[in-house]
């Protein structure tokens, strides 16, 4: 993962989370993971294509997803319904879009795919030949991991 890519994602994840949840966000140590890694339960996936290619995955447990959606919507939600999914999709969109804007400013050009939500138990995500950068963020609602796997197009 090129050094230049790291900061935009970390910064935008941090600032968006802080803004939409109106709460304190703590960043834990970033790390790299190789191909296969577990997904906690609710994952919003945004694809990137252009000068760089890959995907961004915003990953959290079901409980966290419901709590985050509740506070973003300003109402108490109890189950993982369409509203929760739509809210998490929006969160993923905001984080990725801001990061991409920052990367555009640095001169990297690429497009985004619309986010999709994947839910389930015991899931794993694999990216052949790409290492994933994990940005763990803790908020009072739980742990949210921004999982970025992108590479230069060859």
């Amino acid at each position: 993962m090129r050094v230049e890519y790291i900061n935009p994602f970390v910064e935008s994840a941090f600032s968006i989370m802080q803004e939409v949840l109106q709460t304190e966000v703590q960043r834990k140590e970033l790390y790299l993971k190789k191909t296969s890694q577990p997904v906690m339960g609710v994952a919003a996936l945004v694809g990137l294509a252009g000068d760089v290619e890959g995907r961004v995955l915003i990953d959290m447990s079901k409980v966290t997803a419901i709590a985050i959606a509740s506070s973003m919507n300003g109402e108490e939600l109890t189950e993982l319904d369409d509203l929760v999914k739509a809210t998490i999709t929006e969160l993923a969109n905001m984080v990725t879009a801001q990061a991409v804007t920052k990367l555009h400013e640095l001169g990297f050009k690429f497009d985004l795919t619309p986010p999709s939500i994947i839910t389930g138990d015991n899931m794993q995500v694999s990216d052949l030949n790409v290492e994933a950068l994990i940005v763990p963020l803790t908020v009072p609602h739980g742990l949210v991991e921004i999982n970025v796997a992108i590479r230069e197009r060859v």
Binding site: R2, V3, I6, L32, K34, V130, E131
Partner: peptide, 15 residues
């Protein structure tokens, strides 16, 4: 130079 954050113990994708 292209600087990359990468762990050589993972898969190395090299030209």
């Amino acid at each position: 130079i292209i600087f990359e954050y990468h762990d050589v113990m993972h898969e190395n994708n090299l030209p």
